[in-house]
Write a protein that binds this DNA or RNA. Structure first.
Length: 416
DNA sequence: AAACCATGCAACCGCCCAGCT
DNA sequence: GAGCTGGGCGGTTGCATGGTT
């Protein structure tokens, strides 16, 4: 059974409101109020408008103390956090932002905020694409930096791109991550899961990046049986002894992993290494003052990528480990940004591939905000009052965000 | 300068729900 | 309890504007 229209559709005006209509409606409501009946209001006012249209115009535009545009960072954060928590309940979100209407917030989210977040995600996806290209191109090109520099930033928009699957995966991942954040708010124990990418789905871009980086660091750029990048870095830094150690360790690793599958902590394509062995390998290198940046970086990648999948009991320790790892990465990227490490990767005539490695790190440096965003940006950027810290109550408790939800008093576009 | 495109925003549509008869 | 009605809400549309080609 259908329902009767709320007004005579034939005889009502549609479209934008004129200043005269605005003035008429505003003057009437300020003088007499809405009378509790929006449907009857247009007739009383003398407007050829639908009652719902009058209500919308008043609530979204004419009522006092309405703010338009100019959303502050704090409002952004509140909107984001509430959207993550409760979804598109715009009226509830609007109730927490005085002067804002649900329509305004909805438009703001759809046109700007969402793109802002998705833009970061896209950037992250694109970085993965770059990593893939870099990784694959290294096997056939002597100058992978050129490949990086010529990669179009829009390439991942190409629906025919083989990387399109990343977009799909990350879309799902984004929803999953939003959900995880909600879980974090509702259950503090969940924070250890959220903070630990090793526990996230394997499609997580950071994890993928780590895996790819591992692969990259462990392979020979020319796809020959010559020294791997790690070895070449050692050689570039003048450590023939370390290069030989690496060669021995490498042989040990493959022997171990081929004879005892239980030793394999990470299997990715043909790459099979054990966490202990690779750590031993990297530790032997990280003591080098010349190579500390690169190998600490590699170590961090390895540490974080090789964290085994665990359940709740161990989650917190791994979360802590990850926090340390990411801060190390960040510090080292910052160092590189300050050219402190430039000498470590300066092109050498005898080892030209080291310059490629430097370009790789430069690329990583340019994308460092992605790492932060995926790991903890929402945590750190939120104002303290809207804390994500699961230890300190929930966002709802801190701010009383739902103080009026349920009563209906502040639902919709406001108190008027 | 004109056509095209992307973006932002106001407004509409249709569904749901609560209250009333 | 069923039907009706108005209020409220989220999703969508269409237009205006600004930017790009």
């Amino acid at each position: 059974m259908g329902r009767a229209p709320c007004c005579d559709k034939e005889n009502v005006k549609k479209g934008p409101w004129s200043p005269e209509e605005d003035a008429t409606l505003k003057a009437y409501i300020e003088k007499y109020g809405t009378g509790g009946n929006w449907i009857a209001l247009p007739q009383k006012v003398g407007l050829k408008r639908c009652g719902k249209s009058c209500r919308l115009r008043w609530l979204n535009y004419l009522r006092p103390n309405i703010k338009h545009g100019g959303f502050t960072e704090e409002e952004d954060n509140i909107i984001c956090s509430l959207y993550i928590s409760i979804g598109s309940r715009w009226s509830i979100i609007a109730a927490q932002l005085p002067g804002r209407t649900d329509n305004d917030i909805k438009n703001y989210w759809n046109t700007r905020l969402k793109k802002k977040l998705l833009g970061r995600r896209k950037h992250s996806i694109n970085e993965n694409t770059v990593m893939n290209r870099f990784s694959s191109s290294r096997t056939s090109q002597l100058n992978p930096a050129r490949d990086l520099n010529t990669a179009s930033p829009d390439d991942d928009d190409d629906s025919s791109s083989p990387y399109n699957s990343h977009a799909l995966s990350n879309s799902a991942l984004e929803r999953l991550q939003l959900h995880m954040q909600l879980q974090t708010l509702q259950n503090p124990l969940f924070s250890s899961f959220y903070n630990n990418p090793a526990l996230w789905p394997k499609i997580h871009p950071l994890r993928e990046k780590m895996i790819q980086s591992l692969h990259l660091l462990n392979q020979n750029p020319n796809n020959t049986n010559g020294p791997s990048l790690i070895q070449q870095l050692a050689l570039a830094n003048g450590s023939q002894q370390r290069a030989e150690d690496i060669e021995r360790n490498k042989a040990d690793i493959y022997e171990l992993t081929s004879t005892n599958p239980n030793n394999v902590s990470l299997q990715h394509d043909s790459l099979k290494i054990t966490a202990s062995k690779i750590e031993e390998l990297v530790n032997s290198l990280s003591t080098s003052s010349d190579g500390s940046v690169s190998f600490n970086y590699a170590k961090n990648l390895i540490d974080t990528a090789l964290i085994p999948e665990v359940d709740g009991a161990e989650a917190m320790s791994y979360a802590n480990a990850f926090d340390g790892a990411t801060s190390n990465i960040q510090a080292e990227l910052d160092d590189m940004g300050n050219n402190k490490a430039a000498n470590h990767f300066a092109p050498r005539e005898d080892h030209p591939n080291t310059s490629a490695e430097f370009d790789y790190f430069k690329e990583m440096n340019g994308c460092k905000d992605n790492i932060l965003w995926w790991s903890s940006e929402l945590d750190t950027k939120l104002p303290s009052a809207i804390s994500w810290d699961p230890v300190n109550n929930s966002v709802f408790q801190n701010e009383g965000l739902f103080q009026d939800y349920g009563s209906g008093a502040t639902c919709g576009s406001g108190q008027y």
